[in-house]
């Protein structure tokens, strides 16, 4: 029997959303041919959580789901003590989700020094510096299952993954969520009258969509294989980013009519120039309903 890669999936301050998103991976049977969990929050494993805590179980990859805090206790021991022990045993660590990467929603819980493993929002936490080289971040609230599983295979194959400054694989995080959105034309030609509940329109101008400033492959590999939030008509909430969650998520903050947060790499002057030009377009088909007679 071939040797499988052994994974410890450790849940800390979490909603388990990544656990369930992982279960949406469409080739799980294949995955289980190559990987095994020494512990997982819901999938049966050879060891119990108590075994994991009381023994030093051989393991290749540590997955951390959920925010990390100095005083968070799991099964009577400090969560950080479990991290300390297994980070020495494994050859790679993957932070699974935005909480484990940046602190996410639960950085606001009342624990002591809540953060992701290496970041609290954009800021580096120095505490686990010695693990920085070992770590890959998969952010997202939740993670996209393919992003996680393909990264695990890349580790298994020893591929040299290119990572961004937050340790996220560029393969998935070099894109913006805007790439591939079916509402792109409304953005490009600045057709700025979006109403919820319609196939038409872009949520960037009024309804807080962060697609053009958020790194992720939501509209490239799609969710549940079929859709994305922005395609459905829901603004991107920027859930892969250190700043998640920002405030007033359903409205676009503007200064003198200009969105405060502009697309990645676009400065205000260029944006204004471009907006002026696109305003000159009057594209009839984008003013009408898509399925007009």
């Amino acid at each position: 029997m071939k040797k499988k890669v052994r994974i410890l999936w450790l849940g800390l301050i979490t909603c388990n959303g990544n656990t369930h998103s992982f279960l949406n991976y469409t080739h799980l049977e294949q995955f289980f041919n190559d990987f095994e969990f020494i512990y997982h929050p819901i999938i049966d494993s050879e060891y119990s959580l108590e075994d994991i805590i009381s023994q030093d179980v051989a393991c290749d990859i540590l997955l951390i789901e959920g925010a990390i805090a100095d005083d968070f206790i799991k099964a009577d021991v400090l969560g950080i003590d479990i991290i300390k022990k297994y980070s020495n045993i494994v050859s790679k660590i993957v932070t699974v989700g935005t909480c484990a990467t940046f602190g996410g929603i639960f950085k606001e819980s009342h624990y002591k020094n809540v953060s992701g493993l290496h970041f609290r929002e954009e800021k580096r936490t120095e505490k686990y510096n010695h693990l920085f080289e070992k770590t890959i971040s998969i952010s997202g609230c939740p993670i996209h299952p393919e992003t996680l599983v393909s990264t695990l295979y890349a580790i298994k194959k020893g591929l040299d993954l290119k990572l961004d400054s937050y340790l996220r694989p560029k393969e998935y995080f070099a894109y913006t969520v805007h790439n591939g959105c079916t509402r792109n034309e409304y953005f490009e030609y600045k057709v700025d009258h979006h109403h919820f509940g319609e196939l038409e329109g872009c949520m960037f101008y009024d309804h807080g969509c962060q697609g053009p400033l958020t790194h992720g492959s939501c509209n490239k590999i799609l969710w549940n294989e079929i859709n994305s939030k922005t395609r459905a008509g829901l603004p991107c909430m920027g859930c892969t980013e250190p700043s998640f969650p920002k405030q007033n998520l359903f409205s676009t903050k503007k200064n003198m009519g200009i969105p405060e947060f502009l697309p990645v790499g676009v400065n205000k002057r260029v944006y204004l120039t471009l907006a002026g030009i696109t305003k000159a377009f009057k594209i009839d088909r984008l003013q009408k309903k898509l399925f007009d007679d």
């Binding site: 509940g197 319609e198 859709n227 459905a232």
Partner: peptide, 30 residues
């Protein structure tokens, strides 16, 4: 079967888990 039901939610909500597609006044999708 859970993945099929996830697809059924994503058809309206864009993704599952963690969509926010139901908003005050209705749903965002057509």
């Amino acid at each position: 079967p859970s993945q099929l039901m996830g697809k059924a939610i994503a058809l309206f909500g864009g993704q599952y888990p963690h969509t926010s597609y139901a908003i005050v006044g209705g749903v965002v999708c057509e």
